[in-house]
Design a protein around this nucleic acid. Structure first.
Length: 501
RNA sequence: GCCGCGUUCGUCUAGGGGUUAGGACGCCGGCCUUUCACGCCGGUAACACGGGUUCAAAUCCCGUACGCGGUACCA
């Protein structure tokens, strides 16, 4: 017992530093709620100068999803959440996959039996099913009616164990105890031990249950804080009892409120789908969201800095995060707000970063990529009206290709009988320009308008329509400048002919 | 059923015995402007309900309702 996986207390620098784990079960891809838990774990660890450990809790072999672990790792990476120790990275307390630590749990469970805090139970499933018809728990009132090492002779118990009959080890939950703990987010929580089952610690397949593995690993791996979802609150008293049985000091607990669907219910696969909310983290990548925006959005769902700042990058979050400012009420997912965050982060990108972001979706949209210099000009031209990386190819395709169609509503509204003539005259003007810049373009157009004794808008609107096919867009003269002299002339002349017919 | 957690504008939230209950998203209006955005200015809208305690309650206490979670050899 003393020589297995003992926590190393000798390095006191280590033992005072904060250690937090994110401990997902690889039964599916990492979803947005799981990511928020990971994020808060990360932010807390980083803000305290501590470490984040990724531990894979794969004790349920029947629900295991083969590539879930990879998905989890990739999701965290995409968001910039770095872990200090993990199955892939290794670390002082390896292995970090619970399936690889099986023998450890068994030994600890047996030590609990030896100390009288746990017992062997041989009841077949039907017996337990029967029990639950009349009693809520397998515990204080019922354990003495069952087949276990509390009710059977030692010889018989040994015989059963030796003949490899199925058995589980159950925790002996004490009577009349008020189990309490002080949650960093929820405050003091109390539960009567009466309400708690004699928890199964090791399953008949030899695997530990979540409760055992979790407690043993959190202890062995030196966790100082357990930060996890709300749904674990009812289990925490069981864990506290386990820590007590082992004679260990429990870590600090912090239970995060859940993320709800926009209608208030549970954010399930079905509800998310119906609301158009991507559920898996990597779906957000596929859809072209900025990881920083997703992180920012999630951080603000349940936490606030106490100031008016709301746009944060990860580093700022690390600096400002405080678990004391995490709210205790669940929060509803709001896609509109995420989109706003996305726009904020996208626009803050410098031009070089922006063109990198924008190239893949453009390619996907079948746009022939121009050279970087041109792409930069386009990005700077439209960046303030970009909400999403896809918007460039979606709404500003004319920056890359001559428009093939002209908005009929726009034509009706802006194309007058004299428009074709004016557009052609302006194209002549442009063709003859030595200086091709915004000022010259504007001055030339206004001159032309004056000559015809009309408002500048009479030319501006048809020109925009001719050059872009649409009535909305960036400043016309800036647009013309970016498009370039020959493109402008070509488009204007072509449009004058086509719209006329 | 039982146990636990929660409840401030539609949404995210600040505040936490005496506030015109503040901000953000969304929505609406205005300004800017050649358009559409951006930006700026303004508007809309909230303390779940009922009892206490108190000079005073959104804030503290107790109930009720509603929501969510747990009650597994799932995590």
């Amino acid at each position: 017992m003393d020589n297995i996986g003992r926590r190393d207390h000798s390095q006191n620098v280590d033992s005072i530093s904060i250690r937090v784990r994110f401990a997902p079960s690889p039964t599916g891809y990492l979803h947005i709620g799981g990511l928020r838990t990971a994020l808060y774990c990360y932010l807390f660890a980083r803000s305290q100068g501590g470490s984040l450990i990724l531990r894979i809790e794969d004790t349920d072999r029947s629900r295991l999803v083969a590539d879930a672990e990879n998905d989890i790792v990739e999701s965290l990476q995409w968001c910039g959440i770095e872990v200090d120790e993990s199955p892939h990275k290794g670390g002082q307390y390896a292995p970090y996959r619970q399936s690889e630590r099986q023998s450890l749990y068994l030994q600890y469970a047996k030590s609990l039996v030896d100390a009288g805090h746990a017992y062997y139970a041989f009841d077949p499933p039907e017996a337990i099913e029967n029990l639950r018809k009349d009693h809520a728990t397998y515990g204080i009132q019922t354990r003495h009616q069952m087949d276990n090492s509390l009710t059977m002779s030692e010889d018989l118990v040994n015989h059963r164990l030796e003949s490899k009959q199925d058995y589980v080890i159950r925790l002996f939950v004490p009577e009349n105890r008020t189990v309490s703990f002080d949650d960093r987010i929820k405050g003091k929580i109390e539960v009567e031990s009466m309400m708690i089952d004699d928890q199964v610690l090791t399953k008949s397949d030899g695997m530990p249950t979540y409760h055992l593995a979790n407690v043993v690993d959190d202890y062995l791996m030196g966790m100082t804080h357990v930060i996890r979802g709300d749904e674990w609150i009812p289990s925490t008293p069981k864990h506290i009892l386990l820590y007590e049985a082992f004679g260990w000091e429990p870590p600090e607990m912090a239970h995060l409120p859940l993320i709800l669907s926009p209608t208030g219910g549970k954010l399930s696969k079905r509800s998310a789908n119906r609301q158009g909310i991507p559920l898996n983290v990597l779906d957000y990548r596929t859809l072209g969201y900025e990881p920083q925006a997703v992180v920012n959005f999630l951080a603000m769902l349940g936490w606030n800095p106490g100031t008016d700042q709301e746009v944060f990058d990860l580093v700022e979050l690390e600096q400002q995060f405080s678990i004391d400012r995490v709210g205790s009420a669940p929060a509803q997912f709001d896609l509109k707000k995420l989109q706003w965050f996305n726009a904020q982060h996208l626009r803050r990108l410098n031009t070089n970063a922006l063109i990198d972001k924008v190239r893949p979706p453009l390619t996907e949209q079948g746009v022939h990529l121009p050279d970087d210099d041109y792409l930069k000009q386009v990005c700077d031209l439209v960046r303030d009206r970009l909400e999403h990386v896809h918007d460039l190819g979606l709404h500003y395709r004319y920056c890359f290709e001559d428009p093939e169609e002209f908005d009929p509503v726009g034509i009706k509204k802006r194309w007058k009988p004299d428009s074709a003539t004016l557009v052609e005259q302006y194209s002549d003007l442009i063709e003859g320009m030595d200086e091709f810049d915004e000022q010259t373009l504007e001055a030339g157009l206004r001159d032309l308008a004056q000559k015809h004794d009309i408002g500048a808008g009479r030319i501006i609107h048809p020109v925009r329509l001719a050059v872009s096919g649409t009535t909305a867009g960036p400043s016309l003269f800036a647009l013309l400048k970016v498009l370039g002299q020959t493109t402008c002339v070509r488009r204007l002349r072509h449009a004058a002919l086509q719209i006329e017919s």
